[in-house]
Amino acid sequence: MFSRYDFIIWIIIVSLAAGGLLYYQNYAPGGETLVNISVNGEKFESIPLTVSNGNLRREIEGSNGLTVVEIKDRRVRVISSACPDKICIHSGWIDRPGQMLVCLPNRVVVKIESNEQQDIDFYTN
């Protein structure tokens, strides 16, 4: 049933996926880690994610209403949001650079970035 073309295609898909996953698992960022909050594509606030920065709360006015973001113990989560499906709240805590919380109805994006990742070449290689 399965020809060699099948195997080639499947192996390409799985290895691409596994390679990508491993790449992000093993990528240990250096430098400062920042929590970038943006509304409607525009930058709202950028908070350094450090241990000393414990228990912070930010209220962000989105296009639907308020979104409340909590930063605690070097992790970030959305506590409450004025969106119908609450997917951003169910996403829970995030703590790694590259992870993000997106509230699409409210147009609020919370993203963890490290200083090293600001280089655009990182994403194009």
Binding site: I13, V14, V102, V109
Partner: peptide
Amino acid sequence: FVVSQFHLITFYLPLLLLLAV
């Protein structure tokens, strides 16, 4: 494109590729 956050592509694409199988 909708959220104009292109980091979504690089971060979630491997996961979604694996889920597609």
